[in-house]
Write a protein that binds this DNA or RNA. Structure first.
Lengths: 219, 219
DNA sequence: GTGTATGAAATCGTATACGATCCAGTGTGA
DNA sequence: TCACACTGGATCGTATACGATTTCATACAC
């Protein structure tokens, strides 16, 4: 069955926001979106309400919706939250990661290592996303998985406007990934895996914070 | 200004779901809710979309919305997630907790201790909620605060149907609260506070899991 | 030149209407 | 008795319409 108009509108907006077509601050005008989709405003309103509840857009009564503003601080905050939740997701997923998945993760990480020679920040980021998502693909806790997804969505939405590449981090990142995979392969205790996964994201976060002359994250 | 109909509908439903009036599985019929509120269905639909995005209701196309189902597993999962996020929120808030707040927290905990003599589970739960919320009231990270709130909402929504009191936990809980407050008062490092806050919720969670003959949480 | 009133255009908020879809209960034939 | 097509009612999905609110440009007073 064809998706409902409301669903279509939701997907369209979600995609355009997360892929950077609509940058933070972009004004979402109901009528215009409805016209583009060839539908009325009612389904579009619903879609926007959902996006609002997910934190991707802000909504002001009688004024309208805009793509959620994202300053560096919010970016950091999101990274921080994501660090915590991702750590949990990875630890919970670890017992269910099979050999294929592990191999895929190693292969992605190798591709990232290869990129270090002739660096391409955009491609590196893509691979990085893939790597992380492979790890908790079969997380048994749908609630945590949903929170991780939300975190990544926010990051993606912000990245276009505030992404900075930090020299040297890429190399460390690849190493940290490898260590994490080793832990998982060795069936390390969940708490240890969680700690490693969290530390990895926190280290990245702190690199960003340092680059912006901000104090390091306390966690 | 009077809240919009959409906002009213949202608040009404949110409240009824979280306070247990509408238990999981309860069918939310658009027309009926609209009639009760004296408005049309359009604002009600928007409200339900928001609640759906927050995980409080499930929505099936052409069928309708129901209050999100909650089995014991989901309850546990939510507790687990909350443990992690709450730990972070508490740690981040600690540097901003002033003397008044600390005193308030101690006073609430004392009231909980007093309740142990002539136990009242409902009142104890209320105080427990208050205690936790005092701790991260001025968390500097709005994103984390939002996630904590979401977690509590889910718990509240589920509690009416699946709340179980575990004998003996109350006493330990009060002790753990006191230790946490001591750490905060002593300006302990954030990581240590986070660990204590997380451990507190995880211990509670594991008590529930044990009571249900389920394996303990790995984190 | 600065600040304030005014009005029109843009946009939002919601009611109403109606076709589309689902569901439960009924009847029919094997 | 059971399986299955049918049908009526309940409910959802969306278009359209219009009043309400905001915004911004313009005109005017000081």
């Amino acid at each position: 069955m064809a998706p409902s108009k409301s669903e279509s509108a939701y997907r369209l907006l979600h995609e355009k926001i997360t892929d950077g077509t609509f940058t933070p601050g972009y004004r979402l005008v109901l009528g215009a979106i409805a016209a583009e989709l060839g539908c009325s405003v009612v389904p579009v309103r619903e879609a926007i309400r959902r996006l609002e509840a997910e934190g991707l857009v802000t909504f002001e009564r009688n004024v309208g919706a805009t793509v959620a503003a994202a300053d560096l601080t919010l970016y950091m905050h999101t990274m921080q939250t994501l660090a915590i939740i991702e750590g949990a997701a990875t630890a919970l997923s670890a017992p269910f990661i099979d050999a294929d998945q592990l191999a895929a993760a190693r292969s992605i990480n190798q591709a990232m290592a290869d990129l270090l020679v002739d660096f391409d920040a955009v491609r590196f980021t893509e691979l990085n996303n893939e790597f992380h998502q492979v790890l908790y693909r079969n997380c048994p806790n749908p609630h945590i998985l949903e929170l991780v997804q939300r975190g990544w969505n926010r990051l993606a939405a912000m990245r276009s406007s505030s992404f900075i590449h930090i020299p040297g981090r890429a190399r460390e990142s690849v190493k940290e990934h490898a260590s994490l995979l080793d832990l998982i392969e060795a069936n390390a205790p969940a708490a240890q895996i969680e700690q490693a996964a969290r530390a990895h994201r926190t280290t990245t976060l702190n690199a960003y914070l340092a680059a912006a002359n901000l104090p390091a994250s306390p966690l």
